[in-house]
């Protein structure tokens, strides 16, 4: 019964409370979906705006890689508005995500799945699941992930409904990572190099990618004046 599935997922999420924190969405995600880890990425326009939550370090890396590189399961699920399933990233036949795949594999990710977050025709981002061994999701896990993605999308809009206009809801910001340090760093680099903010963001991403470092770390170093691009 579809109603039973919804009730089961809701029971896991709410734990008796009417409004649960975003962190719970990711914390209970692996148990609900049978994945090793889950993460929720919010998108704005066609680019990632940040991570709402992630269940573990590997999931956080999956989110960070996508934020840095602009490609990966969440970005693709969101942009194509379709479920993305990559049951074996190590398969040589897999030519998906040229930049995302090598560091993801190195971190122990073998299979990744992206589920669009949507309410009606409104698209908000994507939920990603990963596993440390290859293989498709079972039909049950797939259905559970769909319900979790649906609950998450509604959660995001419900949370924002309580916020004054022009302000990101507190419940959304708590625990989320909107990479504000990257934007601080972009401001700094734009002054240092006499370039626009957009160019500065590209320079930061390029530096992170070519030095095989997370964008967030590079940004922290720029903000602390430990690093100067140039």
């Amino acid at each position: 019964m579809p109603g039973d599935r919804l009730r089961r997922v809701l029971a896991e999420l709410s734990d008796g409370e009417s409004m649960w924190p975003a962190a719970r969405l990711c914390a209970v995600g692996p148990r609900i979906t049978g994945a090793n880890g889950v993460g929720v990425m919010l998108m704005s326009g066609d680019i990632p705006s940040g991570s709402l939550c992630s269940s573990d370090e590997v999931s956080q890396l999956i989110e960070d890689l996508q934020y840095t590189l602009g490609e990966g399961p969440c970005v693709e699920a969101y942009q194509n508005d379709k479920i993305v399933s990559e049951p074996d990233l190590a398969d040589p036949q897999t030519h998906r995500w040229f930049a995302f795949t090598p560091p993801a594999l190195k971190a122990g990710v073998r299979a990744v799945f992206g589920f669009p977050l949507r309410v009606g025709t409104v698209r908000l981002g994507a939920l990603n699941l990963y596993r440390d061994r290859p293989g498709e999701l079972t039909a049950e896990q797939h259905a559970d992930a769909l319900v979790l993605a649906d609950m998450t999308a509604r959660w995001v809009l419900d949370a924002q409904a309580g916020a004054p206009s022009g302000v990101v809801a507190e419940a959304l910001e708590a625990g989320a990572d909107f990479h504000f340090a990257v934007h601080n760093a972009a401001g700094i680099v734009s002054v240092q190099e006499g370039i626009t903010i957009t160019e500065a963001l590209i320079r930061l991403r390029a530096f992170a990618y070519s030095n095989d470092r997370p964008l967030a770390d590079v940004a922290q170093d720029v903000v602390a004046h430990r690093l100067r691009l140039g």
Partner: peptide, 30 residues
């Protein structure tokens, strides 16, 4: 659906505004 659209746009606008403020902090501090 109209309500969801409105909330999503509001969230996007709020995030964009936050991002511009963070960038401006970087510019002025430097």
């Amino acid at each position: 659906s109209t309500e969801a659209q409105r909330l999503n746009e509001q969230l996007s606008a709020a995030l964009t505004s936050r991002i511009v403020i963070e960038q401006a902090k970087g510019v002025i501090s430097e």
